[in-house]
């Protein structure tokens, strides 16, 4: 019978030990795979929001206001502009409200009136109220305010037409003080979405 030396026995035992280790490792790998078999799914959710269009379109807001033609007289110089909630391609998708105010320098004693959606201003009511104020720099100016907000509902295509009427009273016809003076006129439209 073949005899094993002690060295050979140790050597073979070591090999067996490694074989066991290997087998054990293989077992662990398989066992680990089984543990990971839990179902799992996840997704990002893209929240798409369709933004409403906010559209205010003033038209004809550039006036050819020739100050040399504004002379003291009984005539009224009329300028028309409009405010709409749509343009050629789009319409506002929110309800809006707006107001108008006009600021002028105080150089000329002009009478300024504003009429809304009228065909004949002679029988219409001026919607402006005037006050003279000074700003933080101490500069005086005339502030004409429309004391009302007007609505532009998104359900309708709306155009409001305004007529700005300027008169230089004939009483100042002989007053040289105003000769060569200039007046700046600023029309400001403030609109906001109705919440």
């Amino acid at each position: 019978m073949m005899r094993f030396s002690n060295v050979k026995i140790k050597y073979i035992s070591l090999i067996c030990f490694y074989i066991f280790l290997f087998a054990f490792g293989v077992t662990l790998v398989f066992a680990d795979n089984n543990t990971d078999a839990r179902y799992e799914s996840s997704k990002d959710v893209n929240v798409n929001v369709d933004k409403a269009i906010f559209l205010l379109k003033p038209t004809d807001m550039i006036f050819n206001l020739n100050t040399y033609e504004i002379v003291p007289s009984n005539n009224k110089y009329n300028y028309t502009f409009s405010i709409a909630n749509y343009d050629d391609t789009k319409q506002s998708e929110v309800d809006m409200e707006y107001t108008i105010d006009i600021r002028t320098t105080t150089n000329l004693p002009l009478n300024i009136s504003l009429y809304r959606n009228v065909s004949d201003i002679n029988s219409a009511t001026n919607i402006l109220t005037k006050e003279t104020v000074n700003d933080s720099n101490g500069v005086w100016y005339n502030l004409y305010k429309v004391n009302q907000k007007y609505n532009l509902n998104y359900t309708d295509r709306i155009t409001d037409t305004y007529t700005l009427s300027i008169n230089f009273p004939t009483d100042y016809k002989t007053n040289k003080l105003y000769a060569g003076m200039m007046e700046a006129i600023e029309i400001r439209i403030s609109a906001n979405q109705v919440i």
Binding site: K43, D44, V45, N46, V47, N48, V49, D50, K51, A52, I53, F54, E93, V94, D95, Y154, Q193, V194, I195
Partner: peptide
């Protein structure tokens, strides 16, 4: 990813289906 387009908006001054 998954897209969600059908948010049920509760609006009184905005067009249906739109947000502001």
């Amino acid at each position: 990813s998954i897209s969600i387009n059908n948010i049920d908006w509760n609006n009184t001054h905005v067009k249906d289906g739109k947000a502001a």
